[in-house]
């Protein structure tokens, strides 16, 4: 049996109710993401980028279709199992950082493991040093700039050493210079073997990704992948996996 991709979504449909109307966020969307890839998902607001990330990250369930991550059908897991799955396999990075305002930078990094018996505080300190905040351990989020807060969020996403990092508009709330540094950090993590899936409007972020997928109205409209031989085209396929 051939190896399955790290992330496999098949024929995903996801709808939301907004007032009295129903919005189709994902419309029979399928994509395979291999381990170690850096995928940029691009598309206009409301195209389904965040919905896709939420489904891959075990935050939400599809109306129909399957999400398989590390060979686990995560849409079939119960609430508590999905929380555990997220904790150990997924690192989330949000546009608005979502840090806890009353906790210092280092405590924010430690939040995902505060209920664990083993608390690798040294690792949290190393991660903050790695993202360039070695002198900001005891600063509250309110004392940090947007870029610094995003770095804390990246360190927090890495504390459990997840295989997959999901970032929703990670550069959407920071200046272009800091965005460039954040993207370099993502590239570095990808080079170390982390799989990154980034929902973004930012061409700078998309330009550094190995695979770029464009979606509109919940469907894949175009995809491009970097390869050793240059660019490969991905085309949408109903009900299927990745095509090259």
């Amino acid at each position: 049996m051939p190896d399955r991709p790290l992330i496999e979504t098949v024929d995903l449909v996801k709808t939301y109710r907004v007032g009295s109307s129903t919005v189709k966020a994902l419309d029979h969307f399928s994509i395979d993401i291999e381990e170690g890839e850096m995928v940029a998902i691009m598309g206009p607001s409301g195209s389904g980028k965040t919905s896709l990330l939420n489904l891959i990250g075990a935050l939400d369930r599809p109306d129909s279709g399957t999400v398989r991550v590390k060979n686990v059908e995560i849409d079939r897991l119960g609430e508590e199992q999905r929380a555990r799955f997220r904790k150990h396999n997924i690192g989330f990075i949000f546009q608005f950082f979502n840090l806890i305002p009353s906790l210092t930078a280092i405590e924010n990094v430690l939040v995902p493991i505060m209920f664990e018996k083993e608390k690798p505080t040294r690792k949290a300190a190393d991660l903050l040093e790695r993202v360039g905040l070695g002198d900001r351990f005891d600063h509250l989020p309110g004392m940090l700039s947007g870029g610094e807060r995003q770095r804390v969020a990246i360190a927090r996403a890495l504390i459990n050493d997840p295989l997959i990092i999901l970032a929703d508009e990670p550069t959407g709330n920071i200046d272009s210079e800091t965005a460039r540094e954040i993207v370099s950090l993502f590239k570095e993590l990808n080079d170390e073997g982390k799989t990154l899936v980034l929902a973004t409007h930012d061409r700078l972020v998309a330009g550094r990704a190995k695979v770029m997928v464009k979606i509109r109205d919940g469907r894949m409209v175009r995809g491009k992948a970097h390869s050793r031989d240059g660019m490969m085209s991905l085309s949408p396929k109903e009900g299927g996996g990745r095509e090259k």
């Binding site: 609430e79 929380a83 555990r84 989330f92 979502n98 806890i100 305002p101 939040v111 505060m114």
Partner: peptide
């Protein structure tokens, strides 16, 4: 804040 905690793996 509570929603973010759940998103990063803290159970309900």
């Amino acid at each position: 804040e509570l929603g973010s905690l759940r998103a990063i793996g803290i159970s309900s």
